[in-house]
């Protein structure tokens, strides 16, 4: 398995290391889940775990593109909310319009990504502020449009994307459609970074934009594209969320920070220069496994936040420590 070059300065590291950070944490956490509740080791429940984790994993993949180029996207949770509300208003229970509306949602997502990208690249507003602004703006638009509460209805063919589970599949038993969407999205995200020239450009831009520019990298285009990918991932996640549990005005709340945390737990470096799709995927799976584990432990809800905070700092601290030791 190939990974992208780590930083422009350092040597190409073996893929093993890029995978390790998130994968190790994920396996440890999932083992703990399996220890507490052995039936989570059955393929059926693992598939169900993937179905529920899918939106977060997809968001993390999109967020990773922006993080690689040195930025943040705080607007993705709001975009996911907008998608859920817009889908239900536009489709309004009519299954024939589902695919057309999904197309429209992607157009909407791409436009939001373009706006984010242009503001950051040309107006020079730091991405954390830009996307904070679009977060407020998109959330406000979604609420104003729907009147502040869920409206309309989602037909079954839309809901299926996040909800349908095929039963009696050979070997794995059950297969949720969301897991297929997840695999497809991750494959595309991986290809984008590893199969095209884009991955190298993104890393170069994140590592040192000035140097990348002098080396002929189109810095602005690279940035803008990252925000577009991020917004597209938010649309995809929104569709799965709406499918999984239906319409609500807080469908995407807080997901942006979870996506950032996922990437970082998986070993991506904030402000750019290091990370791979696997950091996003396994980081997100780890985070979701952590949520599940804390649910199973039956701790008071509030303390789960605290534990999440400790793990976040510890994971990043550990990866810092490893990096330092290696250098």
């Amino acid at each position: 398995m190939m990974t992208v070059p780590q930083t422009s300065a350092s040597l190409r590291r073996p893929a093993r290391i890029a995978i390790n950070a998130g994968l190790v944490i994920f396996i440890a956490l999932y083992a703990a889940i399996g220890f507490l509740q052995p039936n989570y080791l059955e393929p059926g429940l693992f598939m169900n775990f993937l179905r529920r984790a899918a939106p977060l994993v997809i968001l993390a993949c999109g967020q990773l593109y922006v993080i690689l180029t040195g930025g943040f996207d705080l607007s993705m949770g709001a975009v996911a909310t907008l998608v859920v509300l817009a889908a239900s208003i536009l489709i309004n229970g009519d299954p024939d319009t589902t695919w057309a509306v999904i197309g429209a949602l992607y157009v909407m997502g791409v436009s939001i990504g373009l706006v984010n990208g242009f503001v950051v690249a040309f107006l020079k507003v730091p991405s954390i502020i830009t996307t904070l602004g679009t977060m407020l703006l998109v959330n406000g638009l979604a609420l104003a449009w729907s009147g502040g509460a869920a409206r309309g209805d989602l037909p079954d063919n839309f809901r299926n994307l996040g909800r349908l589970v095929w039963r009696d599949v050979s070997v794995i038993g059950t297969l949720p459609l969301a897991a297929v969407v997840l695999a497809g999205f991750v494959a595309l995200a991986w290809f984008g970074l590893n199969g095209t020239v884009y991955g190298k450009r993104a890393l170069a831009v994140g590592d040192n934009p000035r140097a990348a520019e002098l080396a002929g990298t189109p810095v602005a285009a690279t940035r803008i594209l990252a925000f577009v990918v991020s917004a597209v991932s938010a649309v995809t996640a929104g569709i799965l969320l709406g499918g999984f549990s239906g319409v609500s005005v807080n469908a995407g709340e807080g997901l942006e920070l979870q996506a950032i945390a996922a990437c970082v737990i998986g070993g991506a470096q904030l402000l750019g220069g290091r990370g791979s799709v696997w950091s996003a995927v396994f980081g997100a799976l780890s985070l979701f496994a952590l949520f599940t584990l804390l649910n199973l432990l039956g701790l008071p809800q509030a303390l789960r936040d605290s534990i999440q905070g400790v793990i976040l700092i510890a994971a990043v601290g550990a990866s810092m420590w490893r990096t330092r030791r290696r250098n």
């Binding site: 939106p55 999984f244 549990s245 609500s248 807080n250 469908a251 709340e253 649910n295």
Partner: peptide, 10 residues
């Protein structure tokens, strides 16, 4: 938290 996805997951 009035969140449908969280409710269903719980």
């Amino acid at each position: 938290g009035s969140d449908r996805a969280k409710t269903k997951s719980v």
